[in-house]
Write a protein that binds this DNA or RNA. Structure first.
Lengths: 246, 246
DNA sequence: GACATCAGAATGTTAGAACAAAGTATTGAC
DNA sequence: GTCAATACTTTGTTCTAACATTCTGATGTC
């Protein structure tokens, strides 16, 4: 029961770390099906000898794949390719990106765009309650069908975003362009009936609920990036997520 | 601007790895407020010299804290304590555990308990569509107030769970006792109006929606552990979660 | 044939060393 | 005084080396 010998090419002149070069190529082998779930993986020592790399380097590459959930390691047994369902694919995406990816023609109508104080939003962003925040209310549609009402508050660092910016692009894309890459978010998802105003904006007829979500997003250093209070037509939208305790 | 010298005790006779002993004590210093967000952290070399540990060992301990989101490292600058909001605290908890922790007297009524085939559940668990699954329907209450209807399907390995087991304990606790520790789950959260039966079981009067959640859970090896289709009274329940892209 | 013992194979832990890269602070020239 | 070059600090990468721990399977005895 010997493992498959994967073809790997290492470029020692490249500025990208050896362990990462290796990790990417191994990762690709799992992704493209060269290695199937359950398949045994070449062991550390053999791999390091074959590729002329030290064991710590190979070990670190394998660790990256284990962290992604692509491989499972057991002491005394070996390393194997994990089942497809445990592969990690996290994303902190926005509705705009999701719709754009599906080719559903995302559109934005801006209802509000002004600097204000808001205690609830400030607290959620771990900022002083009297911090002036840019408050934005948008209706997001796919084609002619309104899907969601998005209320967001941004800290002072981003308060120069214009209405025009927001009409043509998603909020998260704008934040990324400004260097504020959100990597952590606290979300809370619930449901309730819409108000009369919400029914009008979302063109809801009959008895249909809203899916609500609040989100506080932060960058890697813990700086506040955005607080959002969103509501979606529950008929057209679900929140999908992956919980991972490894 | 020198960093605080933390008191750390390392027991080389202990079977617990040195890096983990160190990580736990450093983690505690952040948790109990000895180190505040933004505080500088003693650098790797100094710490390894002071504690008589090798740099790789210290480095691995620090890496553990970085992975938890407790510390932030930047090359050339140093290591600092991260803001409180980016600390990772993941949990794959069940409603029973949540209620018990809050002292809200969780109770369970079993409506169904039988072996059946269910194509949707089997597919969600990455099993053949004709796999016989243990199908369980429960009403979960806090005291006398019904909160949720929980429909779960379990793979054959767990199909010997009895009604009595389920009445006295949470499903996740039972699974853990049997060695099936779920570490990864795919969840989908939505909202809809309740059916007449659901209104009766959950004692819903008036126009109130349900929060729905489906979940497929797997252990570290990728083996199916559970598929659940739950609905909650949206008035009393929200799904809280933390998304993390680090 | 059933069970305990043991060897082998794999990952896990720890150490010591050297150099690379990035950011900060100081120094020096103009 | 301003600005650029330099030195220093700190984390990042890579290697060699040795021993520990855990699981599997083979060996061998009763």
């Amino acid at each position: 029961m010997s493992a498959q010998l994967l073809a790997v090419q290492i470029d020692r002149a490249s500025p990208v770390p050896l362990y990462h070069q290796l990790a990417e190529q191994l990762s690709a082998a799992v992704a493209d099906g060269t290695l199937q779930p359950g398949d045994p993986f070449e062991n550390e020592v053999a791999l390091s000898a074959r590729l002329q790399l030290s064991r710590p380097t190979v070990r670190r590459a394998i660790r990256e794949l284990v962290d992604q959930g692509l491989l499972v390691r057991r002491r005394g047994v070996g390393t194997h390719v994990a089942g497809r369902m445990v592969h990690r694919r996290l994303k902190l995406s926005s509705l705009y990106d999701d719709l754009a990816r599906e080719g559903r023609d995302p559109r934005t109508t801006i209802l509000e765009h002004e600097i204000r104080e808001d205690e609830r939003a400030a607290i959620a962003l771990d900022l002083p309650p009297d911090t002036p925040l840019l408050s934005i209310v948008r209706v997001r549609s796919a084609g002619d069908s309104p899907l969601a009402i998005l209320h967001n508050w941004l800290p002072p660092a981003y308060s120069d975003l214009t209405r025009e910016d927001l009409e043509t692009s998603g909020l998260y894309a704008l934040l990324r362009d400004r260097g504020g890459r959100p990597v952590v978010a606290h979300q809370s998802v619930g449901a309730r009936m819409p108000t009369a105003t919400e029914r009008r904006h979302l063109k809801i007829r009959g008895s249909h609920p809203l899916l609500t979500m609040t989100r506080s997003a932060f960058d890697a250093g813990g700086n506040a990036v955005e607080f959002g209070d969103h509501c979606y037509r529950a008929q057209d939208y679900t929140v999908d997520l992956m919980v991972d305790e490894r």
